[in-house]
Structure formats: structure tokens, C-alpha cells
Design a protein around this nucleic acid. Sequence first.
DNA 1: TGAAAAAGTGAAACCACTTTCACAAATGTA
DNA 2: TACATTTGTGAAAGTGGTTTCACTTTTTCA
Lengths: 213, 213
Amino acid sequence: MAYQRSPLMQERLADNRQRIVQSARGLIAKGGFREASVTSVAQVAGLSTGAIYRYFPSKADLFVEVLSDAVRRECAILRDIIDRPGSADERLRAAVESFARRALQGPHLAYAFIAEPADPEVEAARILCRQEFSEVFKTVLRQGIASGEFPQQSVDVSGACIVGAFTEALVRPVAPTTKRGADEQLVPAIVDFCARAVAAPATSPGTQKKRRK
Amino acid sequence: MAYQRSPLMQERLADNRQRIVQSARGLIAKGGFREASVTSVAQVAGLSTGAIYRYFPSKADLFVEVLSDAVRRECAILRDIIDRPGSADERLRAAVESFARRALQGPHLAYAFIAEPADPEVEAARILCRQEFSEVFKTVLRQGIASGEFPQQSVDVSGACIVGAFTEALVRPVAPTTKRGADEQLVPAIVDFCARAVAAPATSPGTQKKRRK
DNA sequence: TGAAAAAGTGAAACCACTTTCACAAATGTA
DNA sequence: TACATTTGTGAAAGTGGTTTCACTTTTTCA
């Protein structure tokens, strides 16, 4: 009697599941978690509300999957950039730029994934994602510091600051009318900011007391 | 017949209003907007739920007031620091440090005010607050650039990045167990990061192509 | 003091959503 | 085809909050 799903059926189910995740991601990208009600997700995915609960035990679980799915992909891209040859500075710049450019295409999405608060359950997942995420940046930082290219600094803080810096710089323009042209200078400006922040030889030139390590 | 409120009554009403705002702020500080339901606010303020609606037409309006109230105060402090004599670097550092220290005492509050999304109405108010806010940082940046102390850069982007950088660096430790000791190094590390980011003489020393303005 | 107005109350209406469930449709086995 | 089992449906129940409102209490003013 053992019930056996035909390969076709299996595929269709997997397809539905994926379409649900995609729909959720799309809606989040459009208007944050607020926009992504279960009903809307179902509608976009072409299923009934109830069907969602055959694939995910709860809305939170769905969101967690959407989140970790996106982060996994993003991390892979970044890790790839980081692992290429070149100076730490170059690689950091490339990573920041790549991240920023993609975030700029879906600022709501980036915001939701990085900053927008949600159920404790989702929040917990995000903490893990962030760690995984900032770890990538910390890797270059460590390498740069080890090679003497970057000055001594807290990689934890710098990693967080980098993420924060471009999140803020990218996400804020969402609210007012995002001017097309502005983007052109925006990304390089952010990249420069981050590069200076981690790579500057010491603190300020003039009045500041010198730091030593 | 014109009804006239006695001074005593007037004072009591003003007092209630203020207590409502305070209660809301306190609850937000404790657990973000999530925690600050109208019922809770009323309870903490020692009033009935309905009474709140005599002082504020809606929850959103209350939040807007809480927000702008806090930002006004914070901006005043920062503007004060910025206006003191000294190098741009020194003043920027002082401002960032001051902000960071206060934010660290109520990270949830800082987070809610800077990042946590809310009703469109509140969100709109936040945009105004942010502008007012980043304006302060931009002032020092402009001064520093004018005097040649800082390199040429987009003050808009740098301003946003500074706010973002320390928001992220400060807010993230909220979720995991915030270690007491960590704070000691945290603030200087953030200050250094920001100072390097805006004050570094140019981009990186080695491999990077030179920028010209 | 008494009448009119305002302030305060809290239970209930309301709202926007998530989640469930009795049922219908489709799929697999014989 | 008949029957078990799984998948899909959407109306309805449940949830957690905001907002309203008939009412009580307090304040103002004659």
C-alpha cells in the first residue's frame, strides 16, 4: 500500500514549494515583510492560502527559508570574490561594490534581510545569517591586517560597520524618490568610504594622538 | 460660557501628555515598537486605553511625537559638540562617540528610532528626522573638507555611512548576550572606523588606481 | 449647589491578519 | 474501474492588536 509519488508529481511539488519561496521573496522585495501576507504569497504563487501550510508549518518558517536561501546565494557570490587573487583592498572593494550593486536593485529586499525586524523566530535566523555574512568581510580584513596592508583594528567592529555603512547609504534613498543618476556616484562613494575606513594607514594626520599597537 | 481650563488643570493635562510620551519611549526602549501597544502605554502611564485617544488621534501620531521629541534632543546635543572649537577630526570623533555612548545605553531605542520600520506615517517622520540628523554630521564633514583636513568626498554618502556604521555596530550586539566588557573597546573602535573613513588622505596606498577630482 | 462641559473608563466593535478544517479534486494502487 | 491517499480549496475560526463609545467622574462656571 506504500504510497509512492510519481517523479512528475514530485517535481510539481518541488516546483510549488520553490514558487512559494519566490513569491514571498518578490513581495518582500516590493514592500518589505508588511507586503508579504500569506494570502498574497499564495495568490502570487497561484495557490490557495491553505496550500501554503502544506509546504511550511508557519509563516515564520517560510520567511526563514526565504532568508537563508537568499543569504546563502549572496554569501557564495561574495566568497567567490574574496577568494580571487589580488590585494586585500582590491578584493574588499570588489566585494562591497558587488554587494552594493545587487542591493541597489532590490533595496527593500536587502533592507528586510539585513535590518527589518520580524518574529523572534525569523530574527534568530537572521542573526545566524549575519554572522555567516560578516564572516566573509572579516576574512579579507584579517588577511589585510596580517599582510600589513590594513592597520590593526577590530575585525568584528569593522565588519559590522561596513555592512551598516552601506545598508544605511543604500536603503535610505528608498524612501524619497530614488534618482536614477545618483546611483552612478553612490556606489563608488560607498566603496571609497569603506576602503578608507579599513585601509587608512593610521588615524588622522594632525591633531589626533597617535595610536600604537 | 466659554470653557476655561484652570492653570492647575492645564498643568495636569500637559503632565499626562508628557507621561504618555515617556511611557511610550520607555516601552520602545525596552522592546521596540512591538512592546509599545496602546494598552501597555496607557497602563504604564496610569491611564485607561481610551484616554490616550484624547491626547493623540492615533497610535501613529503618538509615535511620531516620541520620535521627533527624542531626535530633537539628540540633535541639540550633537550640534553643541559640533560647534565647539577644535579640528574637524576631533569634533567628528567627539560627536560619534557621544552618540554611540548614549545609543549603547538604550540600543533598542536607538534602533527603533533609526532603523525599525513602522507605519508609513511614522516612517515619513523618520525621514525628516534623519535628514536633520545627518545634517549635523555633514556640517563637520563640509568644514573638514573645506579646510583640507578631509579629502574630497560625498558628504551625503559619508554622513549616511557614518550613521549606518555605528548603528549596525551598536545594534547588533543587542541580540546575542551583550558582553559588558566588550563595550569598552567597542566605542573607540567605531570612532576610529568613522574617523579613518572620512579623514584618510586618499584611497589605498598600493594597487589602487588614484582618484582625481 | 446645580447644570454644562470636558476628561477618563474599559468593555466591546473592529480590523488585518494567520491558521485551521471540512470538504473537493487529483493522484497512485489494484 | 474502485478505493485509498495525498494535495488543494476557501470560508470560517482564532489572534492580537487599535479604535470607538456609552457611560461615569471630574471640572468649570453661574
